[in-house]
Amino acid sequence: MPETATAPAPVVLGKNQEPAPGQSPKGRSLWSDAWRDLRRKPLFIISAVLIVLLLAMVFFPGLFTSASPIDADLTKHFQGEPNYGHFFAPDWFGYDGQGRSVWARMVYGARASVTVGVVVTLVVTILGGIVGLVAGYFGGWLDSLLSRVTDIFQGIPFLLGAMVVLTSFAERKVWVVSAALIFLGWTQIARVARGAVITVKQADYVHAAKSLGASTSRIMFRHIVPNALAPVIVIATTALGGYIGAEATLSYLGIGLADPTVSWGIDVSSGKDALRTAPHVLISPAIMVSITVLAFIMLGDAVRNALDPKSR
């Protein structure tokens, strides 16, 4: 999301400021407030249900279909219309050009997409977070240097850069695609983290900790990181959906994941020549991509609303 996330007001109370006995022990941290807020939001509940379903597909695809996604039977080449009444049967969404069950490929495709999305988001958050923390906290020449490097990476269009990196690899497994997306994707988090750290650094409790003689690492990890985390989490959650979309786009272009990895992007690409005669081959995986991205974007929206005190 391009919206500039403002650092939330630090509402976390220190350990020794726990409410005195007798007062109601309400959770007062930003996180528990956010969690209480989240649980009531329909947006969050819908996206959580969708994500749980997707994770079930990732870990236990056998629960959803008995067919194998790579079991090709050419006698079933584009055979017939999909039988929308045959729930969870191999022919639920018909067969593709190779005679493979479209439904099985829809289920098994979740693994690659979700893995790429989660791995890229985790690594990018840590990597970008560290760069942002170092640049924002130490400032000076280190900040200038890191910011210029961020600018340089930011100048290259994300999709084009990933294409350039990926065409060099003959064997494009999940980790190769993830690495390419990480290589170009960390700048967004780094910028947001840097901004959040700079805001938090000026807070009174940081000056207090410093004057009490706290070490740099203690100030960084006990005081700054927990309070600068919220905007980073918001951007990361929303970005997850974007990375899944990017993986699908690259696979569709033929330079992302490659056979035999089952990927929705590849399936859309292989269905495009039969769009006129057998649209279900293209549309079914396309719907899966869209639902997956939708689920994570909605989660990001819900998390933002919960963590941004201004919107409450």
Binding site: T249, I283, S290, V293
Partner: peptide, 17 residues
């Protein structure tokens, strides 16, 4: 929300179809 979720290649084929 829908527009953000649907990748552009999907939107393209949808429109084409």
């Amino acid at each position: 929300l829908l527009l953000i979720s649907v990748p552009s290649f999907v939107l393209g084929f949808l429109f084409q179809y």
